[in-house]
Design a protein around this nucleic acid. Structure first.
Lengths: 119, 119
DNA sequence: ACTATAGTTAGCTTTATGGCTAACCAATCA
DNA sequence: TGATTGGTTAGCCATAAAGCTAACTATAGT
């Protein structure tokens, strides 16, 4: 327990870096080798590898090595995790706004009836 | 330019910490003072204030001080930003999966006709 | 005026992050 | 077998993150 929380930590953390988001975006289009992933960046390979590791440990990416090339692929469930979290928060705040709106409506009505009384 | 990117950096970064997510969740239910926000945590006030600052600089939270109390409120547009980003990625990978499925269907049909030919 | 409340500032520690180079495997290819 | 390619390990550096204490400021309540 208190574990769902650390999973979210890692996923959000992984996505807080532009390089890693770019990698994720690339992988949305399908698998890619480490080399392919590295091409668009002017960054030493080991640095990029670190990013891939972070993406892996967050669960956003998995990889498998065959021969000398390692193929990486997106693990969409991890992204779904954060979508769910966000949707949950949205639900909560929208419910609150709804209540607020109802309350304001009530106030308006009361205001009107007060005006009538004053006439 | 290359600026939308840093906004996402900050929002994702802000959400990568369980304490800050808890604050955001609390604020979904409505405004709260720094003191109120601090209560549930066993953490020195200055530490908590740092989190609030981070949330503010990410755009997730705004605050205003009146008298000696500072009220904080959620800025839902910032959360919407990341929802949009995620939805975009989802769209891309789902399109790819659709194409993949169509491709597999095509293979299946070809397979069938081959079987027929072999008879 | 005095005290308590609500934040704030400053400054310190420890650990994590993001980048680098250099040297090192392990599979292909010629 | 020898060179190339694709990735990996190890170790270094600078900066940022997350926490703390202690001391301070500015309202509000009595």
């Amino acid at each position: 327990m208190a574990n769902q929380s650390t999973q979210l930590d890692h996923v959000f953390g992984a996505l807080s870096d532009a390089t890693r988001r770019a990698i994720v975006m690339r992988l949305c289009d399908g698998e890619a080798s480490v080399g392919e992933l590295a091409k668009p960046f002017e960054m030493a390979l080991p640095s990029l590898m670190k990013h891939i590791r972070i993406l892996e440990s967050s669960g956003l990416v998995t990889s498998e090595k065959t021969g000398r090339v390692r193929m990486c692929s997106l693990q969409t469930e991890a992204l779904a995790t954060v979508e769910v979290w966000l949707a949950t928060q949205r639900e909560i705040w929208e419910q609150r706004l709804d209540r607020l709106e109802m309350y304001v409506e009530k106030l308006k009505k009361r205001e009107k009836s007060n005006v009538r009384k004053r006439k």
